[in-house]
Write a protein that binds this DNA or RNA. Sequence first.
RNA 1: GGAGCUGUAGCUCAGUUUGGUUAGAGCGCCUGCCUGUCACGCAGGAGGUCGCGGGUUCGAACCCCGUCAGCUCCGCCA
Length: 605
Amino acid sequence: MGIAGNKQTLSNRFRADYCGLLSPARELSPVRLAGWVHRKRDHGGLIFIDLRDHTGLCQLVIQPEHHELFTQAEQLHAESVICVEGIVVPRAEGAVNPRLASGEIEVMVSLIAVESHAQPLPFPVADEVQTSEELRLKYRFIDLRREKIHDNIIFRSRVTAAIRHYLEEKDFIEIQTPILTSSSPEGARDFLVPSRLHPGKFYALPQAPQQFKQLLMVSGFPRYFQIAPCFRDEDARADRSPGEFYQVDMEMAFIEQSDLFAILEGMIEHLTRTMSQKCITQFPFPRISYKEVMNRFGTDKPDLRIPLEIQDVTPLFVGSGFKVFANNTVAGSCVKALVLKGRGNESRLFYDKAEKRAKELGSGGLAYIQFKAEGPKGPVVKFLLEADLSTLKSHLGLETGDVVFFGAGKWESTCKIMGGMRSWFGDLFTLDKEELSFCWIVDFPMFEYNEEAKKIDFSHNPFSMPQGEMEALENMPPLDILAYQYDIVCNGIELSSGAIRNHKPEIMYKAFGIAGYSREEVDQRFGHMIEAFKLGAPPHGGIAPGLDRLVMILRDELNIREVIAFPMNQQAQDLMMSAPSEVTLAQLRELHLKVELPKKEEGKG
RNA sequence: GGAGCUGUAGCUCAGUUUGGUUAGAGCGCCUGCCUGUCACGCAGGAGGUCGCGGGUUCGAACCCCGUCAGCUCCGCCA
């Protein structure tokens, strides 16, 4: 137990002292300890017990002179809860255990009171062997005794405390917003809660306190924050828990994008410096436009530590003899290249695997050229002229021994495929896990073209302020309009999105008009927001970094469950509490609900 | 909704490629021995519907089909 505090002061009949805090300073003084039997070593004539509490471990010694005490100790099992009294004694020279904080001393026990006999556990606490997720989640209360995850939860508490402290210093006000609220028409699927008092009507759990925090700005609170639970009925990922998660939800009035960046950078720098050994690559965080990040990294959440960049080679293939590339030199399409220095002489398998990955990412294939000492090699070489190859070489800075991979097609999908390859090839490099490479992704487009619906849609939050405001909406081609919409990204993980909001009703009507909504429809769907903005709304903006992801990054965890005390599994079930579960007919009746399950298909599968 | 990986003792895993007597190991558990260990040591013992169902076969943990569960990815998701 590495990171628990040292301000344990409570002294009562159970304990007056703490295992991890004992040191030679307490030599020969009587102590009263309580905790779990971490390990027992029974030598027949002498028994050692490692006692564990929240602060750490301490070795107890039980000598055979007290027969009753010795018999008690003999019968103890791992994870039983005991309270002991004894005397702190220095360990003999050579018997010191440098791996234990309390390793210079041990406690000669004079009294043992067993508070709880533990039966054999489904999995060991002391040996932190890999255990199946299923068992760990079912017996989460045992899993949480294990040092690593126990420390993660303590660390998370420290992070939230530090965030509160930092933001309160900056005049932020913490305000709780409702959990039972109304369904919002945009975004993820809602969790619904039936209303007993209003038959046939439902509350929805908030996907985020988005509208509330904006309304708090209208109410004149200049800076709001909340460690806010958010509920979205969407599927899980390693970095995304199903159902519910926490955001450090923030909103500020009378600010511009750069003001918000400065405050958030300050908070993250503070957390990193005070809570970790990690180091931030660049400060202030680099700002990269959406278009640039897609062109260079092929994703809007790049891991900037990977020393690879995608390059554009579209102009080089205008009129090329290789039709697949030449056909993608038209507007809206592109040809992209990704160079791997010194990887031009790998086995055929290396390139085949890369192509397989590209196909998994949705590409038709993965053209490549190996620049070997004996000349260029690869499936597309035969389509290219000598001149094309040398232009390529000088344009991309290619040398003998290098390989270049190509992607061609529609701009966005090609960028994404090459971005997927960039992060796949990222495994070839050793990334410094003590490095936090933060960046802001800015200048997201306000609108995008929806191919299926053949219409213009909002590409992100419809309440974001368009850059250039009304003038831009009236005069610019819609797809060229940018929004004050930004993401903060660290090491390939998106921590949060945020935006400067649109607080002007007329601009909102205009923006919704471009996306095909009439004034009446907007009033119907977002009437209360628009109404609020007609009654005196300050300019405002905000962001909401994911707390779980922030803790993951600071603790080097790859799975979000490792930083959540009681997480659900991938199927959004709580295996410990058996949620979700069926309810009684009486409960359903009171809520005016009737369950109709889908019929299972008969016969063969 | 789709794809991949995994499923053998309480736990972690070997055995499956190439079907063949009674399915193994370490830890844990039970019994005994052991006064300086710290993953204590030593001896003995118990513990299995090989996820489940069906099929092929003289014979299935192993091959085939289906199904369930867990994880990872795509879709989805601020």
